[in-house]
Design a binder for these strands. Sequence first.
DNA 1: AAAATAAAGCAACAATGTTGCGATTGTGTA
DNA 2: TACACAATCGCAACATTGTTGCTTTATTTT
Lengths: 130, 130
Amino acid sequence: MKTTRNTPAKTAILEIFEKSKTALSHTEIQKQLNDVCDRVTIYRILDRLMNDDIIHKISNLDGTVKYAKCNHSHQRVHIHNHAHFSCENCNEITCLENVKPSYIMPHNYKVKEINFTLSGLCPKCLNSDI
Amino acid sequence: MKTTRNTPAKTAILEIFEKSKTALSHTEIQKQLNDVCDRVTIYRILDRLMNDDIIHKISNLDGTVKYAKCNHSHQRVHIHNHAHFSCENCNEITCLENVKPSYIMPHNYKVKEINFTLSGLCPKCLNSDI
DNA sequence: AAAATAAAGCAACAATGTTGCGATTGTGTA
DNA sequence: TACACAATCGCAACATTGTTGCTTTATTTT
Ligand SMILES: [Mn+2]
Ligand SMILES: [Mn+2]
Ligand SMILES: [Zn+2]
Ligand SMILES: [Zn+2]
């Protein structure tokens, strides 16, 4: 089988995810990394972390793509059925681990993954509002 | 007030949307247009159609962005709270006008828009499966 | 018909992600 | 501990997608 290695770049990226309370974009990670590694390496590490179900990808309506650590316990079947919130003011994206949509699908569809992202104002920005 | 004009390019794009049963990406529209207009013009027309609530935008987990005609009756408050399905096999994205997620949000969030995209296999691809 | 305004074309640029390939490094095993 | 070798990295090059500024063209309004 293909073994996965612990490299300085991977470790640094994991630490960044640990510290962050919100989801991070490739660019945000790059800025925090301070040239620990190349741009391309970040993409490749993110790919690996996704394959290993350590992080998951969140895509926003405006096309932004971010990544967040997986908090749920490692299940056999790893599904990200929780919602994400994207603040249109501060642009932060957070996992709402407890918000899980319920819905009724027509027959003949096989659903494998869901992407449920809500946008608007986060609590922080809602309070500092007029 | 700012008036909006009906140009050949806009008309052509609207016809393409009318004929299409699935959502379309900028590139797909461009191919169908056969050089009726410039690439940039397509972007600008899509922007206008979105502003006029004639089409809506759908962003997929893989980063793909597509657009689809709005079928719902024109309401005062125009919200796209229906789900979309993205087939991982044929890559077609369709509106599921009748699938509307229900969910419970924590307090202090102001939700203005939702993006609910499911992915997996569409009926067509599920049948032609093994 | 002339003026005002919306839309189009074109070129240039920016952001984001991908690929190929030679060089480097982490790690299980001798 | 040293070695072998697959996994990872850096770099350059490229692709795709979307944006911006400016000039020109087309459509309305007066
Ligand atoms: Mn997860
Ligand atoms: Mn709609
Ligand atoms: Zn916010
Ligand atoms: Zn399909």
